[in-house]
């Protein structure tokens, strides 16, 4: 655990952990509201949002990508609601129609526009590029105290940290209203809580986490982290607070263990190269959920 670890593994591991935490937080409330698949939908529509933002602005800066992805998430939620209420399409199917179509549009735009050559491509969109976040200027743990080395940190790390803080702060500030509306929307409305705004805010937070996590870890890990840690924690706990706390623990564990397994396990097995870290993290999250299921008694 020396210089090589700091230069090659520390940053990806931190980014993965922060991404996992940022996604798991809103994921808890999506789960409580029976909207887990909304996270799935959001993580798919991030791609067309980013591509359109790139085509319009010609840059891949964070604000542009974020605005595009949030707009796409908003549009998808509006379309899903419109199909459900306006045309009587069943909710799950409405979601499936909207996110597959928008994803397909994103793929075609990406492949046809030449954006693929710049920064984006479909494979990155699906499983990210965690391994590329290397910190070459770091020559050991001392780099953490070296301003010159710190200045050369991959920009994904401070960005992901900022988003995680924003997501956590928003959830903390709206904690009580979120619980109230998640449990009993009718009652929440009757005491004057802005139910629609809270729902939209939750979706926006999930989208924010998804966008920030997306470029580093890909949409598959976003889905896994939106659903798996919260679901495993849900099985083990009996209060929202405990559920959220456990989900964060599971999210961080999945990220760290998954990253280590991806980087080192193939070497132990004699394979020549590491395997996909994002994929391994998703698998670890699934294994934690499986253990949680086996370790708890099913409801009678």
């Amino acid at each position: 655990m020396g210089a090589e670890f700091v230069a090659l593994s520390l940053v990806p591991m931190l980014v993965a952990t922060l991404a996992a935490i940022a996604c798991a937080l809103p994921g808890n409330f999506l789960l409580l509201r029976g909207q887990s698949l909304l996270g799935d939908a959001i993580s798919h529509v991030v791609l067309p949002g980013i591509v359109v933002a790139f085509l319009l602005t010609g840059v891949t800066t964070t604000p542009a990508m974020l605005a595009g992805a949030l707009a796409a998430a908003g549009l998808s939620v509006a379309l899903i609601e419109g199909l459900r209420r306006g045309a009587g399409v069943e909710p799950g199917a409405a979601m499936g129609i909207v996110f597959t179509t928008m994803f397909a549009a994103g793929v075609v735009l990406l492949e046809q526009s030449g954006a693929a050559g710049v920064h984006l491509d479909v494979e990155h969109a699906l499983y990210g590029n965690l391994e590329s976040l290397i910190w070459l200027q770091a020559d050991g743990w001392a780099a953490l105290g070296d301003p010159a080395a710190l200045a050369a940190l991959p920009e994904e790390l401070p960005r992901m940290a900022l988003v995680t803080v924003i997501v956590a702060a928003c959830i903390a500030l709206s904690w009580r209203p979120l619980i109230l509306t998640s449990f009993d929307e009718g009652f929440a409305r009757s005491i004057g809580l802005p139910v629609r705004m809270l729902s939209a805010g939750l979706v926006a937070l999930a989208a924010l986490a998804a966008v920030a996590a997306f470029s580093a870890v890909g949409s598959i890990l976003v889905i896994a982290m939106l659903v798996c840690p919260a679901a495993a924690a849900r099985l083990l706990t009996t209060s929202v607070g405990a559920q959220v706390a456990f989900s964060l623990l599971f999210a961080a564990l999945s990220a760290v263990i998954g990253y280590i397994l991806a980087g080192y396990a193939p070497l132990w097995l004699g394979l020549p190269a590491a395997v996909s870290a994002a994929g391994m993290i998703a698998v670890t999250a699934g294994i934690i959920l499986m253990l949680a299921m086996l370790g708890t008694r099913p409801k009678s």
């Binding site: 799950g92 099985l235 193939p266 994929g279 993290i281 999250a285």
Partner: peptide, 29 residues
């Protein structure tokens, strides 16, 4: 044990993640 939509999200993402892992093994093998 959990809502079906959560189950779908879980299976979808973890199996797909496993698939990606195996594809990287295929490439490096």
């Amino acid at each position: 044990r959990l809502a079906e939509d959560a189950a779908i999200g879980i299976v979808l993402s973890t199996f797909y993640g496993a698939g990606i892992v195996i594809l990287t093994v295929v490439q490096s093998a």
